[in-house]
């Protein structure tokens, strides 16, 4: 072939390789041993020049572009020019964007501007809400932007349940959900590995049938009073209304959880809570106007619906008497919150 011996000799290759090695060492040395007379800008320029030098040496001699057909050089150059041009412009666009956005951000949250330049980890944008009563800020903090990452990635994604187009294959049933998929580079027990092990839901063959409680009444009470917030499927609305499915068994099995559940219905609940890894800060109205039998029935209903019962080691239906007993204690919703906080939840 015509260009067989156009390439350089072994000696030349060796020389180039030597130069490449030396340049790499110089680059290393510049960074490793601080050079007093090089300021930051010049260090970067030097590094860029050196690596461009390496780049050109490899391309020209090892890839033979120096002696080869110009067409190759042309094609490769077009690629390089497009790539360099496009992504330098792109990086530039983001840098001027950030200038103007820092400016604009100062409108909203003056504090952040300094933070973003000094400590990138503190530059987490959050909603500073002007004109909001002080005591509301806390609940705002737990929402939206400021949610910790772990919370976002470990909780079930809110799904738009409003519209029903046929979804025969839900992601969770057919395959791994994301939180189940092992992160590529995570080792067991480290960040990113889901902390909570969601118990496997198995459709139990023996569905718990009515055992000494009124299933029909429970269903009626639920759909009339509870489903508006906690939804018909017991999933609640993430961030607004805690789920009952999968959550209640945890509460029920905690020490004192059984009594707590009764109290929540009788006296309501207000304040920050956590449920299945997601935090809520809302209000559960008191349902004292319901009869003891209704409260017992609806509690039994929710504890046995949505496969909840399969998550329970043992389940004894809540009795009307228990509700009647609890009714005499006359708690406030704040006390109910204390009750909840006292529970030994996993």
């Amino acid at each position: 072939m015509s260009h067989d011996h156009k390439g350089s000799s072994v000696g030349a290759y060796t020389f180039i390789a030597l130069v490449l090695g030396v340049i790499t060492y110089i680059e290393f040395a510049i960074i490793q041993y601080e050079v007093a007379w090089l300021n930051a800008a010049w260090t970067i320029i030097t590094l860029v020049v050196l690596s461009v030098g390496k780049f050109i040496l490899v391309v020209a001699f090892f890839m033979h572009l120096k002696d080869d057909e110009q067409t190759y050089t042309g094609f490769f150059s077009i690629g390089m020019v497009f790539a360099l041009g496009t992504f330098i412009v792109l990086a530039f666009l983001f840098s001027i964007r950030s200038v103007s956005s820092v400016w604009a951000r100062s409108e909203r949250t003056p504090v952040e501007v300094q933070a973003s330049s000094e400590h990138p980890e503190e530059a987490k944008p959050h909603h500073e809400l002007h004109g909001i009563p002080e005591h509301l800020q806390a609940s705002i903090e737990s929402e939206g932007y400021s949610r910790p990452l772990a919370e976002i990635f470990d909780t079930a994604r809110p799904k738009n349940q409003a519209l029903s187009i046929a979804v025969p294959v839900a992601r969770t049933t057919q395959s791994f959900t994301v939180s189940e998929a092992p992160p590529l580079f995570a080792l067991a027990g480290q960040d990113g590995v889901p902390v909570e092990e969601t118990p496997a839901i198995e459709v139990s063959a023996q569905t718990e049938t009515a055992q000494g409680f009124d299933t029909e009444l429970g269903g009626q009470v639920y759909s009339g009073n509870c489903a508006g917030c906690h939804q018909v499927n017991g999933q609640g609305i993430p961030g607004a209304f805690p789920p009952l499915a999968q959550n209640l068994p945890i509460l029920y099995q905690a020490d004192g959880g059984r009594e707590y559940l009764v109290n929540v219905l009788l006296y309501g609940l207000q304040g920050p809570i956590e449920a299945l890894g997601q935090s809520y800060n809302g209000i559960m109205p008191a349902w004292a106007q319901l009869g003891d039998d209704e409260i017992a029935a609806v509690l039994n209903h929710v504890l046995t619906s949505w496969d909840n019962v399969t998550l329970l080691d043992e389940f004894a239906p809540i009795l009307v008497e228990e509700v009647a007993t609890a009714r005499s204690t006359n708690l406030s919703s704040a006390q109910v919150l204390e009750l909840r906080n006292a529970l030994d939840l996993p």
């Binding site: 949610r147 976002i152 998929a181």
Partner: peptide
């Protein structure tokens, strides 16, 4: 992002939708 939970386009992780 969707399969491995990276943050390229996750605003909560600092990802920029505009990219």
């Amino acid at each position: 992002d969707r399969s491995f939970g990276t943050l390229f386009y996750e605003p909560a992780g600092g990802g920029m939708a505009i990219l």
